[in-house]
């Protein structure tokens, strides 16, 4: 069988984008969260790539659905707490508030913000950084701490808005 050339692959990808863009695109909350958490760098088509941020980031199942893992539940609780305090926040703000709080939703010993930084799943105790917490914390702090996951500012460069 003849190998597929790079040009053919590019054409196929372009067609896939044209024909199925709407169906393939990430859902609303992940479209907001992925750049905010710096998970999109180096991937020009990140908004069409579900591997950038899997459903298991917040859901129990890889396929999503109504069951939320501890990190997803922590986001929900953040919305509720903010509303109870009379603050109307959107998803990026709620995510930032949660990561700033220093919590460890899945109880694996690594705070959620450090798991985001290390690209492991903050809602799955079986997924956690391999490096010692102290070493990771130093690197995390040097990179700006939880502030690096602040919501993008309107019209500004923000934290990785596309």
């Amino acid at each position: 069988m003849r190998p597929v050339s790079g040009a053919a692959r590019r054409v196929t990808l372009a067609l896939a984008v044209l024909l199925g863009g709407a169906a393939l695109a990430l859902p609303k909350y992940r479209l907001q969260a992925a750049p905010q958490l710096h998970l999109t760098q180096g991937n020009d088509l990140w908004h069409l790539d579900r591997r950038v941020m899997s459903c298991a980031y917040c859901h129990e199942q890889e396929t999503g659905g109504r069951s939320w893992n501890p990190f997803g539940q922590a986001i929900q609780a953040t919305f509720r707490r903010e509303a109870e305090a009379g603050r109307a926040v959107k998803f990026p703000q709620a995510l930032s508030v949660l990561l700033e709080s220093g919590g460890d939703a899945d109880g694996d010993g690594y705070p959620d913000a450090l798991e985001v930084f290390a690209r492991t799943l903050p809602g799955d105790p079986a997924s956690h950084p391999e490096r010692p917490l102290a070493d990771l914390q130093v690197e995390f702090d040097a990179a700006g701490g939880a502030a690096q996951f602040a919501p993008p500012t309107p019209g500004g460069k923000g934290t990785g808005t596309k």
């Binding site: 986001i75 509303a83 926040v89 959107k90 998803f91 703000q93």
Partner: peptide, 14 residues
């Protein structure tokens, strides 16, 4: 679009 307000409805829908 954007009316699917599962979370933080007041900020979104307002």
């Amino acid at each position: 679009g954007g009316f699917d307000t599962h979370a933080g409805q007041r900020a979104e829908q307002d």
